[in-house]
Design a binder for these strands. Structure first.
Length: 552
DNA sequence: TTAGGGTTAG
């Protein structure tokens, strides 16, 4: 017969490695009969095991009757509830702990900080940090890394870096937390600098570091650094690590470099749902929708079950392809999986059906949503607008406001798109103004593009040009490109040249596209020398090819 | 005498 300790360790190892949910019933009856649960170490492991198997009732039952509650047992039960997002129970347990004989330790605060972060409780987080300081744990590495991470996730990067800098000789986990913190706050350069600094201070980056570093790099402008990060991972043999591999797939897909994303994916042994989802998302993001659907199908065949977000992305690909046949198939699959009532899935279905021209399906789905939210309203407004039902789209907008929902940037993009589809210049300009003044939503590139399109469609090119030039520099090439396309439509060569010049000054990586647009304008007027000059420029340039750089 | 923090996507 195994000793309590041995059995506890076996369960601990088992719960760490177990990939499948197991019945806790048999274990529970065995444990009760053998009175093993009286062993403090064993009890702690059992609580963790129950939690891993989503059996919080048994975890709580065991905890409640256990006489000697060690700090490990307290932490395990608090962690179990916090991880299950039952934050009020986790915090009430902490409150009970404070009045017990057991003092919270660094792990307790680390766990609570994470709980605050996941429940978006910034005040609670500050409070936990304060209590940790009072308890003499203000410079603790474990507590510190959790609080740094939580502050960063709450957008309080200053607080996070202040805490990080105050801790003498931070360990690798703390460096990782701060690199990731900078990454999730958009300070990619600070994250990369910290990565270099940690090595300078003699710390060896691990898999967590590399994952954290990839989160700093978010768009195609980071491709050169992304390649270096990949090279570094290859050098330290971490490129095939499950999480690092996934992070690299995501990184390359954010950089719109789907070929590299694909080649990293192919090196991952036994890609899991996250790896698969990452590549499907990458395909979808890069406009390779057919590949996205193909991989989704393969994933389904292999028995992996997608989650709501992946289903929504795949439906987005169906919408882009106007493939209502496959979209309906996915709809059926969604029903079989029991995901049809998820608001994200439902909104994606509305979007898919309306983009595939089946508006009545979309409207029926919308009508059936019991608790409509901003996402579902945005989808239906966009759908109505696409089909030219501008007044119905605006009615939905009013309905949404009456329900007390706050419109976001997507709502206004949908309304402006509606105006474009119906050629409603005045209404478009009016909603654009209200967006800023009444609702405090800051316009983004796509909103400006819609306004330019509205003016362009109405032939008001000079007005559109003035509008564009009044924007903060540098002006996004997408906005200038929209104006250029209407210069082409209205055959305004003079303005087209000025606009094109502005675009080319931006050093825009898609400059070939704009050069072709300008050359089309020249061609219309028979300016063949200019056409040839531009076309030569396109073939001579080395766009798309990137020189390699290396950190080693 | 063991355990607990810090990972990945949309």
């Amino acid at each position: 017969m195994a000793s309590h300790t041995q059995l506890g360790l076996i369960i601990f190892e088992f719960s760490r490695k177990s990939q499948t949910k197991l019945s806790t019933q048999k274990l529970h009856s065995f444990v009760t009969k053998s009175k093993l649960a009286r062993d403090p170490f064993f009890a702690t492991q059992l609580v963790r095991f129950y939690a891993l198997n989503d059996d919080l009732v048994s975890a709580r039952k065991l905890f409640d009757v256990f006489p000697e509650r060690s700090v490990f047992l307290w932490n395990s039960v608090i962690r179990a509830f916090a991880k299950a997002h039952q934050f009020s129970t986790a915090f009430s347990l902490f409150s009970q702990m404070l009045s017990s004989a057991t003092r919270p330790d660094n792990f307790t605060y680390a766990c609570l900080a994470r709980g605050c972060s996941e429940s978006f409780d910034t005040e609670g987080l500050r409070c936990i940090h304060g209590i940790a300081i009072v308890s003499g744990l203000g410079f603790d590495q474990i507590c510190g890394s959790a609080i740094v991470k939580a502050y960063s996730k709450a957008g309080l990067t200053f607080e996070a870096s202040k805490l990080f800098l105050s801790i003498p000789d931070p360990d690798v986990a703390l460096w990782n937390a701060m690199i990731s913190g900078y990454g999730c706050s958009g300070f990619w350069d600070k994250g990369v600098n910290l990565f270099n600094l940690m090595q300078h201070r003699g710390h060896v980056p691990n898999c967590y570091t590399m994952v954290a570093l990839t989160t700093c790099l978010i768009d195609p402008s980071s491709l050169l650094i992304a390649r270096s990060v990949h090279g570094f991972c290859l050098k330290i043999n971490l490129d095939t690590h499950a999480y690092v591999g996934c992070a690299l797939v995501n990184l390359y897909s954010r950089c719109r470099c789907i070929a590299s994303a694909c080649s990293v994916y192919n090196t991952i042994s036994g890609p899991d749902l996250v790896a698969c989802s990452s590549l499907i998302t990458g395909y979808s993001r890069c406009g390779n929708h057919k590949e996205a659907l193909y991989l989704f199908n393969e994933m389904r065949m292999s028995g992996k079950k997608p989650d709501c977000v992946l289903v929504a992305i795949v439906l987005g690909s169906c919408a882009e392809l106007s493939d209502s046949v496959y979209g309906k198939e996915v709809h059926g699959y969604v029903i079989r999986l029991g995901l049809e009532f998820d608001i994200k899935v439902c909104s994606a279905l509305i979007d898919m059906y309306s983009k595939c021209g089946v508006l009545d399906y979309a409207m029926n789905l919308f009508a059936g949503i019991p608790e409509k939210n901003i996402v579902s309203f945005n989808s239906v407004i966009l759908g109505l607008g696409l089909h030219g039902f501008a007044s119905s789209a605006f009615e939905k907008f009013t309905e949404m406001l009456e329900m007390g929902l706050k419109p976001d940037e997507v709502t206004f993009a949908a309304l402006l798109s509606t105006c474009c589809h119906s050629g409603l210049l005045n209404e478009g300009q009016e909603i654009f103004e209200r967006m800023k003044s009444e609702f405090g939503v800051e316009p983004q590139t796509e909103h400006y593009v819609y306004v330019v399109k509205l003016m362009g469609m109405a032939g008001k090119l000079e007005e559109a040009f003035e509008f564009v030039m009044s924007l903060r520099k540098p002006i996004d090439s997408g906005i200038l490109g929209a104006l250029l396309s209407y210069c082409e439509v209205h055959e305004n060569t003079q303005l087209a040249e000025v606009v094109a010049e502005n675009i080319l000054e931006n050093g825009e990586e898609r400059r070939s596209v704009y050069k072709v647009m300008l050359s089309n304008v020249y061609a219309r007027y028979g300016r063949w020398d200019d056409v040839e000059r531009l076309r030569d420029g396109i073939t001579e340039s080395s766009e798309g090819k990137l020189p390699g750089i290396s950190w080693f």
